[in-house]
Amino acid sequence: MFVVVVWFLRRPMSARVRRAASGQFVQLSKGTVHYQWHGPENGPVLVMVHGLTTPSFVWRDQLSALTGAGHRVLTFDHFGRGFSDRPFASYDMDFYVQEIDELLEKLAVPAGFNLLGYSMGGGIAAHYGALRRDRINRLILLAPAGLLKSEPNWVARWPVIGDLAMFLFGGISLRRGCKRAGAREGVDADMIALQCRETRFAGFGAAVLSSLRHVIYIDQTATHRTLMDRDVPVLAVFGTADDVIPIDCAMRLRGINRSAQIVEIDGAGHSLVTTHAKQVNRAVLAFLLP
Rank of each mutant, 00 (worst) to 15 (best):
S119L: 02
F8M: 12
F79Y: 15
L103A: 08
M191I: 12
C196A: 12
Q62D: 06
S64W: 10
L289C: 12
N153D: 12
I172M: 11
M228T: 08
V160E: 05
L104N: 01
F57R: 09
F167S: 04
Y35N: 00
F79E: 13
I216Y: 07
T274K: 14
D243M: 04
A250F: 07
A130D: 01
T75E: 08
W154L: 14
A277V: 05
V280S: 13
Q36N: 09
A286Q: 15
E264P: 08
D94C: 03
L141T: 03
P159T: 11
V6W: 11
L74K: 03
I192C: 11
T240A: 03
D242H: 09
E105R: 06
A236E: 02
A183W: 04
V284Q: 05
A241E: 12
P159D: 12
G171F: 00
Y91T: 00
V237A: 01
D266V: 13
R138T: 00
I216W: 05
R11W: 10
I192W: 03
G43M: 01
I192M: 14
A206T: 12
S84E: 04
F287G: 05
V208M: 10
G43P: 07
F287S: 06
G146M: 02
T75R: 10
D266A: 14
W37L: 02
K149Y: 08
T54R: 14
I216A: 05
G51Q: 00
D163H: 10
L131C: 13
T223I: 10
R213N: 00
E185Y: 00
M1N: 14
D85T: 02
H34Y: 10
F169R: 13
S56F: 03
H50M: 11
D134S: 14
D243Q: 10
H270F: 03
V215P: 00
R133S: 09
L46E: 01
G129P: 03
L131A: 09
L253A: 06
R86S: 12
G186E: 00
V97L: 08
V109M: 03
A181D: 13
V187T: 07
G205V: 01
T67E: 06
G23K: 09
D85E: 12
L141G: 00
G182Y: 00
R138H: 02
S64D: 15
L212S: 02
H71C: 08
A222W: 01
I256C: 01
K278M: 11
I256V: 07
L28T: 01
